[in-house]
Design a protein around this nucleic acid. Sequence first.
DNA 1: TTAGGGTTAG
Length: 614
Amino acid sequence: MNPVGAMLKIIRSTTAAAASSSSCWSWRGMPCLHSNSTLVVFLNNYLAFFHSQPSKPIKSRSTQLKQPVRDLPNITNLGDAFNMFDRMLQMRPLPSVAPFNQILIQVAKLKHYSAVISLYNQMGMSGIEPDGYTLNILINCYCHLNQMGFSLSVLGNFFKLGLKPKVSTFNTLINGFLLKNRVAEAAGIFNKMIAGGNCQPNVVTYGTLVKGFCMKGNNSAAIQLLRKMEEGACKPDLVAYSTIIDSLCKDTLVDDALNLFSEMMCKGIAPNVITYTSLIHGVCKLGEWKEATRLLNDMVSRNIFPDVRTFTVLLDTLCKEGMVGEAQTVVEMMIERDIEPDTVTYSSLMDGYCLQGRIDEAKKVFELMLSKGSMVDAFSYNILINGFCKHKMMDEAMMLLGEMSGKGLVPDTVTYSTLVDSCCKMGKIGDAQKLFSKMQACGQLPDVQTYAILLDGLCKNRQLSTAMQLFREMEGKRFDLNIVIYNILIDGLCLAGKIESARDLFCGLSSRGLQPNARTYNIMIKGLCIGGLTSEAVKLLTEMEEKGCSPDGYTYNIIIRGFINNNETVRAMGLIQQMVERGFSADASTTELIVNLLCKDKVDPALLPLIKRE
DNA sequence: TTAGGGTTAG
């Protein structure tokens, strides 16, 4: 049984167990279910518990935290920010720089970085002199806009104004460089901080570097840095630990994450909702529902309450498991309890409906988001566009693309990649190429994944020479070409009957620093079988096992089909036996071939039990 | 008042 199937079995069995279990009461009266209860039951009980309470603890807590200053209302959209800014400019005497900084902070939090720069320029024209905070905010915005040159030039403004950059200034710059994968420059600033003596790195500096390592996928280096912090004066804090815990969870190393979590608590560092959300996400991705329930119980017992992001993680997991009805219920209960679902929550739900092919319901969620004002972003558009594409509703998808600019949203690399993929899969390779050109004309650069999509489309649509041209273009752009790209190309060469070239590319992988994965072997084995080279295919089957790449049901099926199609019946039967012994079974195509064979050649019926329909 | 950690799409 595949992992999803196994997980669904567990969910079904735990649902039955939960129905007969009664809830107990944990610390501070929060509902706590027995460990064999399902996540859904837990969620329902958790939310029902809050529903029964007269107070609304989560809302009141978050409102206090969000209030930026006593005198300024919370800004939730760009229009409000501009209005308030204009009103302040008309006041006489002019307010100090501090409330202007507050507006800039709020606008930056809304991710309207260009707007912050525009407001900053207006401040200058109105004679409001920036202070160190203003300049730090400005640097941060330039960093997010990938304008590191401007970020660095702001340093000059500090000196012009007689201000001294602080550790936070350098931390912002380090973060900016790391966000753009410019590790050398980030390291350069860090080294200068150490050498300079005046502005020593602090816990945020180290936390930023820890995140940098995690972003590069180097958890070991992140942990090493954590250990270094322990030796020095700057001890690791909750953020440093949580960053690594999250990274380990994302890499499905949940046991390591839980060990670090225990270590952190042993040192007296208390976890918060962010730490728990990362862990819950990690176990959910592995389908460990009981563990998710345990963690939810654990956090609640510590008086740490799941927030909108925690619920979104759970809701998204339910959606990905096809339990979109339960996900919808969770949304409704969140609303009842004033845990307001945000853009990501609704986008996840929309994706859940798309995954189930319930496009009309996905559209309803999207319309609800539209009715709520500034809730729809490029990400949510991409999700619905993807939903339309996956269900061959290309006209509707293109209409959404057209709608985006009218809403001030910029279609990004993912938007175009999704559409290119859909065109390819529908055989409209010309349209795909046009979109590929259009995205570049609009300033959206295709990434490796976009290239992979088009490369695959060209190969599958038997345009090998154009595919090879695209591949050379990728090489010219010095992309970090991964095994996925080579798998596509080897598959394309095999499909075009160029087995020699495919074999050359396959054999040359190690010289390019790449290891074939199970998919690479399957592609090559299939190509060899179609080319009648079954003995070589069997050799590859052995090789993949020797190299620690376990063959799967697909591997066996393609070789067995190869044997049958090459009239090597005895070898086919031998491999069928091996396949069954390893717990795999014949798929529909293989079964059909075997049945035909049995009918035609009167093969020993004793072999029939070996053929197990899926 | 400014800097580092958690959620969605190809």
